[in-house]
């Protein structure tokens, strides 16, 4: 299923999120199962499936990483089916350093400061990679698409780091 087509938006990495939200709500107003409360059983089941599809599509286009993955899938590049290992040692080193930094937070003299520092580093890297990703996807050719897939994999590491950082922050607050 082409999610861009569903929302009648141009297939690209840059998506107008307000427009996406508006169209999403318009579709749900038509297909949410509440419109079918007194319908026949078959029609109700169809409505549930349709509304689930619309929700899934919205979920996928809303988040940049899932959106990029969907775009690549439409172009025939599937991340999960591709076994490429990282050769970018600089990236791996950077990840290890950030992980060590995360581990240090608990015992740091000023944990809040270290959290803020780490967060800033992660955010910067993420921004950088997202910009690169937008560029490679805009090129729309197979070679750049493979590069884009690599960038997505790297971004996933950063999103995971961000998530772990939030968990650590919560633990400290509680």
């Amino acid at each position: 299923m082409n999610y861009f087509q569903l929302f009648q938006l141009p297939a690209g990495f840059d998506v107008d999120l307000t427009e996406l939200g508006t169209r999403y709500l318009e579709l749900q107003r038509n297909f949410h199962p509440d419109n079918f409360a007194t319908a026949s059983e078959r029609d109700r089941m169809m409505a549930v499936q349709q509304a689930a599809n619309i929700n899934d599509a919205y979920h996928s286009l809303k988040q940049p990483l899932l959106r990029a993955e969907h775009l690549l899938a439409l172009r025939g590049v599937k991340l999960s089916h591709e076994q490429r290992s990282f050769t970018d040692t600089a990236f791996l080193m950077q990840q290890m350093e950030l992980r060590e930094q995360l581990a240090d937070i608990q015992d740091a003299a000023d944990p809040d400061d270290l959290i803020a520092q780490t967060e800033q580093q992660i955010t910067e890297q993420r921004k950088l990679l997202l910009k690169l990703l937008a560029g490679t996807l805009a090129a729309n050719n197979p070679e750049q698409d493979l590069l884009a897939a690599d960038i997505i994999r790297k971004l996933k590491f950063f999103f995971k780091l961000q998530h772990e950082l939030e968990l650590i922050e919560q633990q400290l607050q509680d």
């Binding site: 929302f7 508006t22 169209r23 709500l25 318009e26 579709l27 107003r29 169809m46």
Partner: peptide, 18 residues
């Protein structure tokens, strides 16, 4: 009908409608 109505749902779409 479902496919058809999905295609139609967003046609003539204006932002201020929602």
């Amino acid at each position: 009908r479902m496919d058809n109505s999905i295609r139609q749902a967003l046609q003539g779409h204006k932002v201020d409608e929602v």
